[in-house]
Design a protein around this nucleic acid. Structure first.
Lengths: 98, 98
DNA sequence: CTGCTAATTAGCAAAAATGCTAATTAGGGT
DNA sequence: ACCCTAATTAGCATTTTTGCTAATTAGCAG
């Protein structure tokens, strides 16, 4: 759901997590180590991101590997860009043709 | 501030307001008329958007005209797109050159 | 099974967001 | 001055979010 995505993006720590995941998949513990907040707090941020499907989690034996889900991020970015273009109220069929 | 922007975008009504503003500048009252929520509630949503500089407000005599600020929206979209590209840890100087 | 590490879930308190009604400000018009 | 409409601000209650510590689950090693 679109709303969960923007809600998830509304906390700076969660955007920071996504930024860290740009470097590649990361273990939950490695992510937590980058922040001042407690582990359980990080864990919940990750859960929020997972709920929004902005990340995926895969257990690797003892630990859990988080991966960014770029397609959902793309959709969010596209939604924002969609708010920029002027809506001239034209017939959508004609609009698609131009 | 970047954070205020994403906070502002996290509420569906506010994204809806921005969507309505795609059609062009709108009076606060016309915007409020599109929603089920009370006027003061709408007024606060508008204030949040204004704080984030996602919209501007100009008094036109008796009423107030709201306009979308696309540049802030662009920055937000760009920030999201920035989270997508893989960070390979390369020297930023080289990276800028490619 | 016991012990150890990794991570999550439970439960709580504090802070922030939401949304309402009532009161207020701002700008005309008469 | 008075009144009317447009919009915001005040004040309050409810809900959601945040973040902590303590307790729990999950997997692996011995």
């Amino acid at each position: 759901m679109q709303n969960a995505v923007f809600k998830a993006l509304s906390h700076p720590a969660r955007r920071q997590i996504l930024a860290l995941l740009r470097k590649g998949p990361q273990l939950a513990g490695d992510l937590a180590a980058e922040f001042d907040t407690s582990w359980p707090t990080m864990s919940r941020h990750l859960a929020v991101l997972k709920d929004a499907e902005l990340v995926t989690a895969d257990r690797q034996g003892n630990q859990i590997l988080y991966r960014i889900n770029t397609s959902v991020l793309e959709d969010a970015a596209t939604a924002l860009l969609g708010l920029i273009g002027r809506d001239d109220g034209d017939d959508p069929i004609k609009e698609a043709a131009e």
